[in-house]
Computed example of a mutant assay.
Amino acid sequence: MQQPIQTLSRKNYEEIFALSQFAFQYKLSPEEMEKKKAEADRHTIWGWMDEDKIAAKLHLIPLSCYINGKEFPMGGISSVATWPEHRRKGMVKHLLHHALTEMKRNGQIISYLHPFSFAFYRRFGWEHAFTEQHYSIPIEKLKKRWETSGYVRRIKPDISLLHELYSKYAIKWNGMLVRDEKWWEQRVLKDDVHIAVAYEENAQAAGYIMYEVKENTVKVKELVHNSLNAQKLLLHFIGNHDSMAEKVTMIVPEDDHLPLLIDEPRFEQKVAPYFMARIVDVAAFLKTYPFTGEGEITLTVEDSFFPENTGTFEIKCVNGKTSVTRVEDQNLAQSANCSIQMLTGMLLGFKRPSDYFKAGLLTAADCEIEILERLIPAKQTFLTDFF
């Protein structure tokens, strides 16, 4: 008997993208279709089949991300869609479970997705892990004496230079993608944007901006800076577009300090939930995770959708070395308790252990919270990419 979940291939692309265009309400030109197909060549695509037709589908993109300065293999879930006549039959649920099984087998120990509904994907273990802060700034607020050294120059796309600057910046945050050349070509530089690079006084590149000017607005697509001076150089550069635009829009990390640098910080600042994340393999993730400080704690994790993750783990950090042991008899240990969702948010740094504890989402004694606060590095999550 034919299995309902099948791995799809190039011969299915027309059907795959017909469903994507219907579900996500867009229309591809022939040229755009070819670009989409080229992108999809790196995806693993599974379809739930009904009489040899795709009823539902899911794309898995092999990626990596930075967590506390370390690269983690990551599976990006994308383009999950179902035809209306097949919805609410549990097909996506089965596709997600299949994807988790394959990610674990492939060593992709964490997964991201951009949800149509946070509540829907929380049922399957993904959790809110990335928030965007949106700025809309009257451009005159950037017209000031920035006290900088160095200069800014517009450039044509130079992946080698941009990648070097991006990688130094990305490692400062938890969750940023480790980009490769194809990702730059197919995703980051796919649109026609202006690019300018900030150079320090010694002619060393230290940041860049990708942007467009339209509808009387400077729309910043990506702003990367590896020094305060580079940031100020780029802000000054943006301000020099005042004859072309009245405002500037950009997306920044939650802990961004731009309001501290502007003389009048009253401008539109809006925080919006963005991506979700999920630990795929708890044991492997804990053993790979770069804990800091010293201490030991016993942690019980509940994963109802992927039960092989459910268990109790002893974590010991001594003299800079970490050991993680699975405790088979959970009754032997007094432990802190949390769901797979809260474990993901806590270890990514989206919120601190004390935040989840205060919200009643992490059960632990006060001394255990103190240990978790000490062992888990404090680093903000941020994600500039989309898929």
Rank of each mutant, 00 (worst) to 15 (best):
L60F: 09
F72W: 08
E368N: 11
Q21A: 14
P307I: 01
T363K: 15
K321L: 13
K379M: 07
Q341W: 03
I371K: 14
K37E: 09
V218I: 10
T217Q: 02
I67R: 02
H163R: 05
T292Y: 06
L347W: 03
A196P: 00
E302T: 15
P290V: 13
F118R: 04
W126P: 01
L8G: 04
N202A: 12
I238N: 00
V220F: 03
D52E: 15
N202M: 06
A40H: 02
T310D: 10
R153Q: 13
A284M: 15
E222V: 06
A55D: 08
K35W: 03
K104E: 14
T131F: 02
C65L: 13
D192T: 12
I139K: 00
P259S: 09
T363L: 06
Q334W: 02
A23V: 13
I262A: 02
L189S: 09
K89A: 13
N240S: 15
D255K: 08
E212S: 15
R153D: 10
T300S: 15
L19A: 06
E373T: 08
A283R: 12
L142R: 03
K104Y: 02
V280F: 06
Q269G: 06
A378N: 08
Y26Q: 09
H128G: 01
S243E: 00
D355V: 10
F22N: 15
D50W: 08
A272G: 02
T384R: 04
A170T: 03
F116M: 10
D366R: 11
P84L: 08
L60A: 12
Y135M: 05
L189P: 11
I251Q: 08
E127R: 09
F124T: 08
Q269V: 15
N202S: 11
R154N: 11
N331Y: 07
Y169R: 03
F17E: 09
F17Q: 13
M103P: 00
M1A: 14
A272Q: 14
E164R: 12
Q25A: 14
V197K: 03
I251P: 00
Q25L: 12
L60Q: 10
D303G: 11
L233K: 02
K143V: 01
G295Y: 05
Y26H: 12
M276A: 04
N106C: 08
K35Y: 07
E181N: 13
L177V: 08
R87A: 10
E51V: 10
F118A: 03
E102D: 07
A272N: 05
Q231T: 05
P4M: 12
L261A: 05
Y211V: 07
K232L: 10
C317T: 12
K143M: 04
R10V: 09
S111N: 06
Y121G: 04
F291R: 07
C65K: 06
N216E: 15
N68I: 05
L235H: 03
I137Q: 01
L343R: 06
F130H: 06
A18M: 13
M276I: 02
A364N: 03
P73E: 12
I155F: 10
L372T: 03
D385C: 01
W184A: 07
N240K: 10
K156T: 14
R123N: 14
A272I: 09
H225M: 02
G349F: 04
I195D: 04
P377I: 12
K93D: 11
V327P: 00
G76Y: 01
L8D: 03
N106V: 00
Y356K: 04
H98D: 15
H134A: 06
